[in-house]
Design a protein around this nucleic acid. Structure first.
Length: 540
RNA sequence: GUCGCUGUAGCUCAGUGGAUAGAGCGACCGCCUCCUAAGCGGUAGGCCGGAGGUUCGAAUCCUCUCAGCGACGCCA
């Protein structure tokens, strides 16, 4: 049992003796920031003073006298009623053995049996991924990793819109570019896709099919769409693959529409549907929405919302305890709309959670850049990654809370140098590896004997709280907290390295302990970086 | 107008009820005869947008207010 859990148990028992029954979540144990405040502290005495009908310091005194644990050396009371725990020597050291015995899984929580579906990116197959997708990819992927390690059964899902208006425009654009290659005027509408990427696809198509598609008929119309989707999706997959983002499930809108699924859903929802001006509306305002939303346009076509409802019902029917959609912040109006639709079928409102990801702005030399210099169009995901590298982009995007606007500094990300924060963490890992390699003839001693300096204790505590750091980052859907954990761990490793001569051939016993601590740190850093999808090099 | 996000060091951001508000970058001063100086130690820099309130205690919660961005479509 970790020290935190042990202390919680003791506190709960002490409170119970006084007739106060607290749950674990009521008790907060913190690692003390300062050594004069002990190893751990709790504010429980202040929190519960009212409930116990006495003043905080009195209650703290009671706790001081009634807490029993072999791990505690002594307890001090400070300030308005903080209870500071000073642990016995040896109480922290046990963690090294645990880490060394489970290098690949240290940090993982046991399975809790809950299934979560995380849908993210889901970019339409009509063009290149842009920086908004990059950020959503990082946030979605890291949240999935965190949930996985926190004990959830996670499905990463991509929803492919391969029906409707947008792919019609894609087909039409591709047709136009294809005809253009044969010297005909390119007829593109305002809503078509004017990007150069379509020209590339058209060239590829010409190579494969020659002039066989010049005739306009239903067959060629369908073929342009199908070919366009395939080509665009292949590019998206390639980009995400290179970005270390992989999906378990790809769901196509065309599959969702199969077997009259939409018509059947409309029948089911008919008590919530009414007709107005030739269109059909869903009464979402009966639930959480501020107005009703159209599901069938007056021209008879479905709005995007309708198949999306079916898609979410489809996800729920697969037995997930929770659906998470990671979306751009411009979708915030969508949340209550979709929750309302889920509630119409009897699902609770909180069966869907939407993580909104704020916009990305890019800066170069202190000036915002909106367009790529090379193409004159919006900067693409691919360009960014090619220029800055996967590790830097993933780390820098994960480092910021998704709820705040992200200003991405090109100059910083492109520098393969100390100024780039991702290298700080990777360097700490590489340093561990380097020292371990130099001392590989010395056996590791996982007992922690002799590791009692301030920085060693701080590092041990940091390594010990890795599992709980993962869980809280997962529960809060907060990738940036994992980045903060990594930074703190790297900082302690660097400090330890600077202050302690790790390999001392004249003191093999201490060296064995220190090498074991370095090995444990290396494992934690590697596992933590892998949660962000960032590599952990052994040499830099 | 309604709703959402944001406002903290020169810049980019952590910190959402606890002790002296933190990090990176930038600035300045130190530290390699010795395991990677992509590092370490130190200095400077803050009425936490503003005003009220809640309580033992507020950057954090509530109300009001100011500013920036975004969303409010029979687009997706």
């Amino acid at each position: 049992m970790s020290n935190e859990l042990e202390l919680k148990k003791c506190l709960r028992e002490a409170f119970a003796k006084r007739g106060l029954n607290l749950s674990d979540s009521d008790i907060v144990i913190e690692r003390s920031k300062e050594s004069s405040h002990g190893d751990y502290s709790t504010n429980a005495a202040m929190k519960c003073a009212k409930m116990a009908h006495c003043n905080p310091r009195e209650l703290a005194c009671y706790l001081q006298q009634n807490l029993q644990s072999d791990l505690i050396d002594h307890i001090e009371i400070a300030g308005p009623g903080f209870v500071n725990f000073f642990m016995k020597k040896g109480a922290l050291q046990g963690i090294i053995g645990t880490i060394l015995a489970n290098p690949d899984t240290y940090g993982r929580s046991p399975s809790n049996g809950k299934k979560i579906d995380v849908e993210f990116v889901s970019a339409n197959p009509t063009g290149n991924l842009h920086l908004g997708h990059t950020r959503i990819a990082v946030v979605g992927d890291v949240i999935s990793n965190l949930l996985d390690w926190a004990g959830y059964d996670v499905t990463r899902e991509y929803y492919l819109n391969d029906c409707g208006n947008q792919v019609e425009h894609l087909g039409h654009s591709l047709r136009g570019r294809y005809h253009e290659l044969f010297g005909e005027p390119c007829e593109l509408d305002a809503d078509d896709y004017h990007g150069t990427d379509i020209i590339e696809i058209a060239k590829q198509l010409k190579e494969e099919k020659g002039d066989s598609l010049l005739a306009d008929n239903q067959e060629t119309h369908d073929f342009f769409i199908e070919y366009g989707i395939k080509a665009e999706l292949a590019k998206i997959k390639r980009d995400l693959d290179e970005f270390r983002v992989h999906f378990d499930v790809l769901t196509k809108e065309s599959d969702i529409r199969k077997g009259n699924a939409i018509e059947n859903t409309i029948k089911e929802l008919s008590p919530h549907i009414y007709e107005k001006d030739g269109a059909y509306y869903l009464k979402t305002s009966d639930y959480l929405d501020d107005k009703d939303r159209p599901i069938i346009k007056s021209n008879g076509q479905y709005t995007y919302f309708m198949p999306d409802i079916c898609y979410h019902y489809n996800k729920m029917s697969r037995g997930f305890d929770l659906l998470i959609d990671v979306l751009g912040a411009d979708h915030h109006g969508y949340i209550n709309r979709m929750k309302s639709a889920l509630m119409m079928k009897g699902y609770p409102a909180d069966s869907l959670e939407v993580e909104l990801v704020q916009v990305v702005r890019t800066f170069r030399d202190g000036v915002e850049v909106k367009m790529s210099k090379r193409t004159g169009q919006a900067i693409t995901h691919r360009e960014l990654v090619a220029e800055c590298g996967v590790d830097a982009v993933r780390y820098l995007f994960a480092e910021r809370s998704q709820s705040s606007h992200l200003d991405f500094n090109y100059n910083l990300a492109m520098q393969q140098s100390s100024e780039n924060p991702v290298f700080y963490a990777q360097y700490a890992h590489a340093r561990c590896c380097s020292v371990l390699s130099l001392g590989q003839d010395i056996p590791l001693d996982p007992s922690g004997t002799g590791l009692d300096s301030e920085v060693e204790s701080a590092l041990l505590k940091q390594l010990a709280c890795f599992p709980s750091a993962i869980c809280s980052a997962a529960e809060e859907r907060a990738p940036h907290k994992m980045a903060a954990y990594i930074h703190k761990t790297a900082e302690l490793v660097h400090e330890f390295y600077a202050k302690a001569r790790i390999i001392d051939r004249n003191n093999i016993s201490l060296t064995s302990s220190r090498l074991a601590l370095i090995k444990a740190s290396e494992i934690v850093l590697k596992n933590a970086l892998s949660l962000l999808g960032v590599s952990a090099p052994s040499k830099m």
